[in-house]
Design a binder for these strands. Structure first.
Length: 733
DNA sequence: CTTACGTGAGTTTTT
DNA sequence: CTCACGTAAG
């Protein structure tokens, strides 16, 4: 068993470029991995190869991803390739790895051993609470905006004291930021961005810790590099030992600038170019052979993305044939579009295509409604991505809050969540008194409660709550994790409460599921209890971190044969036999809030590129001449992205609209009749027009009378224009 | 404390 | 239009 497997075996089946990437010598490298080019395979094979050829031990490398799913997949594939125990390897998300590091060095990081992780919802409520204390006007400072500000500062690597603020508004923002961090520190909690920033600061400050990890992780591998933000890049640089004039560790970065679709949340594609420079990258390996799609689809994707200026440059190709033409359907309205898609799906399904191999992609979540309605009417099973996740459900968060209080009662966020849930007669005024007391004594709410009622007596009110938490803490000693989960649900009265609720059965089922999740967690992670210092971490704390960092499946029954409905963003990384991209209209896709700025438009185009490259065999693109949006009928012109695809790749299907479908669409249209006066005017809404300067457009609205009529025309890329008919040369087409 | 009503906003999302 | 949120009333 000491014989290493034959490395040729490992490398078998790789193409030339993949092989080059996998077997690169010890130097930093940038792998430009196109969609469907075997990116994950290259990444995992690289790890396996490094280990197998003895260049590094499993403990000597670190691989980082953005999602838990990607990390899990990497580990799964890795253990299939190598006879090693992947447990204990440093493969995980940025947040997961930082959490691990902070747990190992919590003292040096200035955190309590049991520090809890705030998810976005926790963070927001924490900010709201703080703003109340600070007497901040939440009209001038919307909490969500404050949260965005704090997070983006942290993601730039900045603390409040180093943020620039010249006007009073931003100075106040900075002040809230500073107080918020103090509050978190007091309560022993860390938000997501804090995990990264705290870890970065720890490594920067503590030379011995930094050197320990620098000498340990000779190889660092990064997935989806184009999605890294500034802080993540700084963290990587520090960990690699880059910048202190010595030889640094090498980073193997895999990414695709053409699939960078997260600039809006701080991702910096520019990190790719910086990386080339900072790490003296000798050559970029481009993986351009695509194993997913037929060439018509790839040609369309290539044609679209060529319209972007800022690219590293890459062209996908395939040895598969042309395949089917890309089908384009111009719908009368959104209902017609949905019905068309449903008809096509019925046909495909009848031909034997599995429903879960068909995806319906859209730019924004609101578009799913019409599609769902049509699917529901047709009796087709579907599942929509993007709902609440398991650990985000209210009843689960309640139960977790009790668990958090067992681990650390100073956690004000957790305390406030459940101090009166289920209700135990603690109203707004007793809460206010408690918060006032805590403020005066500058202590946690829990401490204030103790000071007020002593050890608490069973019964009602704050006394009862204090007694309850103490009882939980005592009874949980020696219990296993699942038993604790059960204790939290039962002793708190949560289960009892939901028993009395009309629709409480699902919630109770979820509470049971939490116990199951605890069992699964115990079985799975039992080997990870010992941290770097050899200290045993509380399993409870680990479980709570897990709950925050990995919110669980997006929805249940993932295995069922059902159509897949999701935004283009959530489709990234997935592939389907057949893909429908709907709503291809100017203003929707590209979205109007992004289309007037070059960088925004380019990101929209990359989004379209991602959408198109999801399809293996068949791709449908559709747009509607009118659509219900925000309760109003809107008229749109076809997306420019459609124009960017060479006509010879397309097959236009408009003529095949079935009479029954049109009837349904018409019925809908009649519900919103236009005023008859408007119909009498020569320029109807929805009329296609041509303008000498602006090109083609659609009349969207108008004002004035027949003598002095002004029409608003949507010219797509030229935007919305008001035109006085008296002067503008407009022609109907 | 719950329920009803009014108001306003309305891309994309992982951790 | 539709949902989420906040306030006012019961």
């Amino acid at each position: 068993m000491n014989m290493p497997p034959d490395s040729g075996n490992l490398l078998a089946g790789l193409n030339e470029k993949q092989l080059e990437a996998v077997t690169l010598p010890h130097q930093s490298a940038l792998i430009l991995a196109g969609a469907g080019s075997g990116k994950t395979r290259v990444l995992t094979t690289r790890i396996a190869w490094l280990i197998q050829t003895g260049q590094v031990s499993p403990q000597g490398l670190l691989a980082v991803t953005f999602t838990n799913k990607a990390a899990k997949e990497m580990l799964t594939r890795l253990s299939a390739m190598l006879p090693i125990n992947t447990r204990g390897m440093w493969v995980g998300t940025f947040h997961g790895l930082c959490n691990r590091l902070l747990r190992a060095h919590y003292r040096e990081a200035g955190l309590p051993a049991t520090f809890q992780i705030l998810d976005s919802a926790d963070q927001l409520s924490s900010i709201k609470r703080l703003m109340k204390v600070m007497n901040v006007d939440d009209e001038k400072f919307p909490p969500k905006q404050v949260m965005g500000y704090i997070n983006s500062c942290k993601e730039e690597g900045l603390r409040a004291h180093s943020v620039e603020a010249y006007d009073s508004h931003s100075q106040r923002m900075r002040e809230i930021f500073e107080e918020y961090d103090k509050q978190c520190q007091r309560e022993g909690v860390a938000d997501f961005a804090e995990l990264l920033l705290r870890c970065y600061e720890l490594l920067g400050r503590e030379a011995s810790i930094r050197q320990h990890y620098q000498s340990r992780f000779k190889y660092i591998l990064v997935d989806e590099f184009q999605d890294t933000n500034r802080l993540q890049y700084l963290w990587l640089k520090l960990l690699a030992g880059q910048g202190n004039n010595k030889e640094h560790n090498c980073i193997f970065a895999v990414g695709d600038d053409d699939q960078s679709i997260y600039a809006f949340r701080g991702a910096r594609v520019g990190n790719m170019r910086d990386f080339e420079e900072d790490f003296n990258v000798q050559s970029i390996v481009k993986l351009e052979q695509n194993y997913r799609s037929h060439s018509n689809i790839l040609d369309a994707a290539n044609a679209i993305i060529t319209h972007n200026r800022n690219r590293l440059g890459k062209n996908l190709w395939t040895s598969a044939g042309k395949g089917e033409p890309i089908r384009v359907y111009q719908a009368y309205n959104d209902i017609d579009e949905a019905n068309f898609i449903v008809d096509e799906i019925k046909m495909l399904h009848a031909e034997g295509v599995d429903l879960n191999q068909i995806a319906m992609l859209y730019r924004s979540n609101a578009q799913s409604r019409v599609l769902e309605h049509a699917l529901f009417t047709a009796g087709l099973p579907y599942r929509v991505y993007g709902g609440l996740r398991f650990f985000e459900r209210a009843e689960i968060k309640h139960a977790l809050a009790y668990l958090r209080l067992i681990a650390n009662p100073e956690d004000d966020t957790a305390l406030l969540r459940v101090i009166n849930f289920p209700t135990r007669g603690i109203g707004a005024r007793s809460l206010e008194q408690l918060q006032e007391a805590a403020r005066q004594q500058s202590c946690s709410l829990w401490q204030a409660a103790i000071n007020k009622v002593g050890d608490g007596r069973p019964g009602k009110g704050i006394e009862g709550f204090v007694a309850l938490i103490k009882q939980m803490q005592e009874e949980s000693i020696g219990l296993t994790l699942p038993e604790m989960a059960e204790l939290a649900s039962n002793l708190s009265g949560l289960r009892q409460y939901y028993l009395g609720e009309k629709e409480g059965e699902d919630r109770i089922a979820n509470l049971d599921e939490l116990v199951n999740a605890a069992v699964a967690f115990m079985n799975q992670d039992i080997g990870m209890q010992v941290d770097e210092n050899g200290e045993t971490q509380s399993l409870l704390t680990q479980f709570l971190s897990h709950a925050s960092l990995e919110a669980g499946e997006h929805q249940a029954d993932a295995g069922r044969d059902a159509l897949q409905l999701m935004t283009v963003h959530s489709a990234k990384g997935l592939e389907f036999k057949t893909v429908f991209i709907s709503g291809l209209e100017e203003g929707l896709f590209p979205h109007e809030q992004s289309m007037y700025e070059a960088s925004g438009l380019e990101e929209e185009r990359r989004l379209m590129y991602v959408a198109v490259t999801r399809a293996r065999q068949r791709l449908y693109l559709s747009h509607a001449q009118s659509r219900m949006l925000h309760g109003q009928v809107r008229y749109g012109i076809p997306s420019r992205f459609l124009d960017e695809i060479p006509e010879e790749l397309l097959k236009r299907l408009n003529a095949t609209a079935s009479p029954s479908r049109m009837a349904q669409a018409d019925a809908y249209q009649n519900h919103t009749p236009a005023p008859s006066q408007k119909d009498a005017l020569p320029w109807k809404i929805g009329q296609s027009v041509a303008h000498s300067k602006f090109g083609q457009g659609v009349v969207v609205s108008y004002e004035g009378n027949s003598n002095d009529l002004r029409v608003q025309v949507n010219f797509g890329r030229e935007g919305l224009k008001w035109l006085a008919l008296e002067y503008a040369k407009l022609e109907k087409i």
